[in-house]
Simulated assay, not measured.
Amino acid sequence: MIINKGNISFEASIPLFEEAKTSNESVQCVLNIKTGEINSVAIIKNFYFKIALTEEHFNEHYLESDCYPKALFKGRITGFNWNFA
């Protein structure tokens, strides 16, 4: 099963500071329905913030998206069972 419109979101806001909340709605994910193996990839620069400076700091200082343009996740869902019946 392949999904091209997955979503990752997070919030790291703290009171009295600018909001640090974002999401990426173009995450790709592949699920092997026989084994429960899951792989996903997100392009870091597809996380958008309300405040441009927050986005700049996120990409340049925190995630260094020019050096590390993608976030990868590989795993296996334990106890996965595709059978719904």
Rank of each mutant, 00 (worst) to 15 (best):
C29A: 15
G6D: 04
F49N: 01
A12G: 14
H61R: 01
A12R: 03
F10H: 02
D66M: 12
L31Y: 08
V27P: 12
A52K: 12
L63F: 12
T78D: 11
L53I: 13
C67G: 02
S65R: 09
P15A: 12
S23V: 00
G6H: 00
S13G: 10
I44M: 15
I44E: 07
S23K: 13
S26K: 15
Y62S: 00
I51N: 09
E19K: 15
K21N: 12
N39Q: 09
N39L: 00
G79E: 05
F10M: 01
K5I: 05
P15N: 07
F58T: 00
F47Q: 10
E56M: 03
S9D: 05
N46K: 15
K34N: 11
N7S: 03
N83S: 06
L16R: 06
T54A: 08
L31R: 08
E11R: 02
S23Q: 10
F17A: 13
G36I: 10
G75M: 15
D66N: 09
P69I: 06
I43S: 14
I43M: 13
E60N: 03
T78A: 12
L63N: 00
F73P: 03
I51W: 02
E64W: 14
G79M: 04
A12S: 11
V41S: 10
M1E: 15
F47S: 10
V30F: 10
L53C: 00
E37F: 06
E19M: 09
I14T: 14
K45D: 11
G36N: 08
D66W: 10
C29T: 14
I14E: 03
T78R: 14
E18N: 09
Y62V: 08
N4C: 01
A85T: 12
V30L: 07
F47T: 15
G79Y: 05
E37H: 08
W82S: 09
Q28G: 05
Y48D: 10
Y68P: 07
T22D: 02
P15V: 01
F17S: 12
E25W: 00
S13L: 02
I51L: 06
I77W: 08
N4G: 07
S13F: 06
S40E: 03
F47M: 11
A52H: 08
A20H: 07
Y48S: 13
I8N: 04
I8A: 04
I33D: 13
L31S: 06
E18V: 01
T54H: 09
A12K: 04
S13W: 04
T78C: 09
I33N: 10
M1D: 15
N83K: 12
N32Y: 09
F10Q: 02
S9H: 05
K45W: 00
H57N: 11
L72V: 08
F80P: 13
I2S: 15
G6C: 03
I2E: 15
A20P: 00
L72Q: 04
Y48R: 12
D66T: 04
L63Y: 08
T78E: 14
E55P: 03
N7I: 11
I8H: 08
I43W: 02
A71C: 14
K74L: 08
H57R: 04
G75N: 13
F10E: 04
N39P: 00
T22V: 03
L63H: 02
I43A: 13
I33A: 02
K45F: 01
N4D: 11
E25P: 08
Q28F: 00
N24R: 10
S13R: 07
K74S: 12
F10G: 05
V27I: 13
Y62R: 01
T78W: 14
A12C: 12
G6Q: 06
